[in-house]
């Protein structure tokens, strides 16, 4: 299999509690994979290990053949991973457009001297960033004010901006941490379509999600976590039928 992301025997613990404990899974290029599991199963901790926010105590994270274990978050981002956060992490006082521009930070096109002298190169770069920002906002279906601070927006729109920001990163791997949380039914429907369109751009999407309807509908593969390790890995139908999964969610019967 042509894996884009490989996680091998990953482990991290906080004060003796093993949040992730021997997690292994891989994600193929162009796949949509959901990571699910009961609360406290270690999903977000695993995400944070992959993206460099936590340093795993053991195991490997391999992205497109290169070992990125323990890299700083910005280096992981530069290597080709874009992410959103479980609880929105936008830049609240900056404009919607500036928030999306953040995703394009690594594309450069100007330096401080260009900025001080307002060179043609600078103006070109700025114009490009603005157009790209608009393009990504359009792509996620954002219809709202773009020139004002992002903190004034309702929750659903902020979610869209965060996804636009991650997409603007143009990274092959997109990690979405509970993109459906707090969205209403209609918004979830739109999210479903959006995730597919992201994949159609040639990106690989990994999401953590609690909404089983969404997960079963959108995922091509589901990885189920419990107690920090994978207990099932397969198509939505396979996973749903797996007794270990049922047990993890419902508890052992009588």
């Amino acid at each position: 299999m042509n894996a884009l992301l490989e996680v091998r025997d990953l482990g991290i613990s906080f004060g003796g509690v093993k949040a992730v404990d021997g997690l292994t899974f891989s994600v193929g290029r162009g796949e949509i994979v959901s990571v699910i599991g009961p609360n406290g199963a270690g999903k977000t901790s695993a995400f944070n290990c992959v993206t460099g926010f936590y340093k795993p105590s053991r195991g490997r994270v391999v992205l497109d053949g290169s070992d990125i274990t323990g890299w700083s978050p910005f280096a992981v981002a530069a290597a080709g991973v874009a992410r959103t956060f479980q609880n929105l992490r936008l830049f609240p006082n900056l404009t919607v457009l500036d928030n999306v521009r953040a995703g394009m930070h690594l594309r450069g096109g100007q330096n401080a001297f260009d900025a001080l002298l307002r060179t043609p190169r600078f103006k070109r770069a700025e114009r490009f960033l603005t157009e790209e920002a608009h393009r990504w906002l359009d792509f996620v279906g954002y219809e709202g004010p773009r020139g004002g601070p992002v903190r004034d927006l309702p929750y659903g729109r902020q979610r869209q901006v965060e996804i636009a920001r991650a997409l603007a990163r143009e990274a092959p791997l997109v990690l979405l941490d509970e993109p459906g949380a707090g969205l209403n039914h209609g918004e979830k429907g739109a999210l479903l379509g959006l995730i597919r369109r992201i994949r159609d751009l040639g990106r690989t999407v990994v999401l953590i999600e609690h909404d089983m309807g969404l997960v079963m509908e959108v995922s091509e593969r589901v990885v189920v976590l419990d107690h920090g390790r994978e207990i099932a890995d397969g198509t939505p139908a396979q996973v749903k039928a797996d007794p270990a999964v049922v047990e993890a969610y419902l508890g052992r019967e009588g």
Binding site: F74, F91, L94, A115
Partner: peptide, 22 residues
């Protein structure tokens, strides 16, 4: 400019800035 925005990303949310490759 790009640099100035990066400064403000850090001011607003350092982790999110890192995640964007800053």
């Amino acid at each position: 400019s790009r640099l100035g925005r990066a400064w403000m990303f850090i001011r607003e949310d350092e982790d999110a800035a890192e995640a964007m490759g800053v």
